[in-house]
Design a protein around this nucleic acid. Structure first.
Lengths: 327, 327
DNA sequence: TTGTAGGCGTTATCAG
DNA sequence: CTGATAACGCCTACAA
């Protein structure tokens, strides 16, 4: 694309300066290769002096496997997903992997982008909740590129999944309702087939039985959706004692929406985004352990990179009830 | 790292199927190369059938330049920075570039990480506000790798900068104060040498003169810092009419912190993060145009990738006052 | 332990 | 316009 005059320092330069062969240099930077300590030091010194860095591109081409991990995510504006991104990047870095970031916000653009990602020969892909069509994951699996899903459902064989334990979360919420003696319970969620929403909803429905008196799904599922859904629901069922929300964003919107309302049920959320702790909300919610989600995701990915043929695995990450003033 | 049995389909395979040479295949996928339409079609058909994708790694090694752009950022939990990430990734994708994400949260880990990034032969680097030591950028510039800074200061020659027009923002705030007739104005910000804080503060100080009666800098600059700083300041100056905050996060914290307080000055922010529009806050703030920031950043980077030797450039992105109920 | 000699998949160069 | 051929920088048998 530009002038080729970037005179990178290469292994050969280091070798010359150190008075050894190229291979000696290569071996010095290959973990677990056999080099005499003395030459190793010479090489290291020369490398330091010249500012040599192994050219990962060349190494990748040679070995046929890269350090790139595709991270496919949508909606950076969603605080939960942002919260997940940091530990994910951190975990990858710990293992010498580096994320290629792919925004799935625009489904139109996603398909070509994902195909393009293929040409980077990523070692694996992590797809987080909300990122759309899983059919695309098949292209990766077909090429034996491991795919790990976070908080997502998958009918695909051969891809691993980590998710927060939504059923435990539902238990915690139900228990809390029982403790407080609530018998008129409402629920709002995103689209009914959205993974987290539906898992949480199904589990709650079973646990609450006919205490669950009203439900509403609101596509999109952000703050505004929470507002609208909460208002509608409380209009319909003015004697609701608690409004259980599938996500914190919905819950925060709900709290604000209900302020103007006559009936003021308790509100619970799910995720524990930073804003849930803010003063006007003080949201009682189920906390997802993003650090652990990330750790499992990377671990699953790594083991499958090491050996692709493995039965699909699935891990549930424990959650925790955070009780605040909202319920 | 693993079995090398990933039998990627390569140009040679396509060539064989199409009955042409490797070069013909290569040319077909090289924009602006001369291929007969007929062979081009043959190649395309064969490629489609085999599911061929150009191996970008190999291409990069050959041409000596990659499509990788390093994005160095800290604090994904900061809503403003998350908001900036989406358009940034989008802009890069538009130009066929893909971001390598680097988390600068841990300054300890950053230095080695940044050096490592070097070995990926990135075509350029974008550093966003908050990401620490700029000394590291020098390593890139020394290797003629373009560096673009977003909302950051730099003493380094040869790196381009985009920033929101903080001075215009300060004007808007000052004007607003004048319109409302406020004469007792307080200011809170992050560390005094933080780029955005200091730019906004300096401009405001000049504009407001002795109407600016109290100032406090609070390291970290998040929600909690805003709370604490606001309380301290209003304790000190109970007759404050408005509290101007260097960022929305500070402002939101301030609003909540002051709820319990006797004196309740108006509050303004800066950034316009999504939460600023939420009901309990309705924050009057200066909106940064993240889409435009991203566009400029990528544009600057691209032009400098095309030609490294260029005088350092600097662009200011206009901001906009969003008046809501908080002031 | 060391050095030498391929080869990884592309693109660029240069004849034809 | 096309097809051989030589890099690109590195890793890895293999032989010394």
């Amino acid at each position: 694309m530009s002038e080729k005059s970037k005179n990178w320092v290469k292994a050969e330069d280091v070798a010359r300066l150190a008075g050894v062969s190229r291979s000696a240099v290569s071996r010095t930077f290959t973990p677990g290769a056999s080099v005499a300590e003395k030459t190793r030091q010479k090489v290291l010194a020369a490398a330091e002096e010249l500012g040599y860095q192994v050219n990962i591109i060349a190494r990748a081409m040679n070995t046929g496997s890269s350090n790139f991990i595709g991270i496919v995510t949508a909606g950076f504006d969603n605080p939960f997903r942002s919260k997940l991104l940091a530990p994910l990047v951190h975990q990858l870095a710990l293992h010498g992997l580096i994320p290629l970031l792919m925004n799935a916000d625009d489904p139109q653009q996603l398909a070509p982008s994902l195909k393009q990602l293929l040409s980077y020969h990523v070692a694996g892909v992590i797809i987080t909740s909300g990122a759309p069509p899983l059919s695309l994951a098949e292209e990766y699996l077909a090429r034996k590129i491991p795919v790990t899903l976070i908080n997502r459902h998958a009918d695909l064989a051969g891809c691993d999944r980590v998710a927060s334990d939504n059923s435990q979360g539902a238990h915690l919420i139900a228990q809390h309702c029982t403790n407080r003696g609530w018998r008129k319970i409402g629920f709002i969620g995103e689209d009914a087939h959205h993974f987290s929403t539906s898992q949480r909803y199904q589990a709650l429905k079973k646990l609450l039985g006919d205490r669950l008196v009203a439900t509403r799904f609101f596509p999109g599922g952000g703050y505004e959706a929470g507002r609208a859904a909460a208002c509608e629901l409380c209009e319909e069922q003015p004697d609701l004692e608690v409004l259980v929300c599938a996500t914190d964003m919905l819950a925060l919107g709900a709290i604000d929406g209900l302020k103007a309302h006559a009936s003021r049920p308790a509100v619970t959320g799910f995720d524990d985004i930073p804003q849930a702790a803010w003063d006007p909300y003080q949201l009682t919610t189920v906390q997802q352990d993003t650090a652990l989600l990330a750790r499992h995701a990377v671990d699953l990915l790594l083991t499958r990179i090491a050996q692709f043929e493995l039965p699909p695995r699935q891990r549930a990450v424990p959650v925790k009830l955070i009780v605040r003033r909202s319920a």
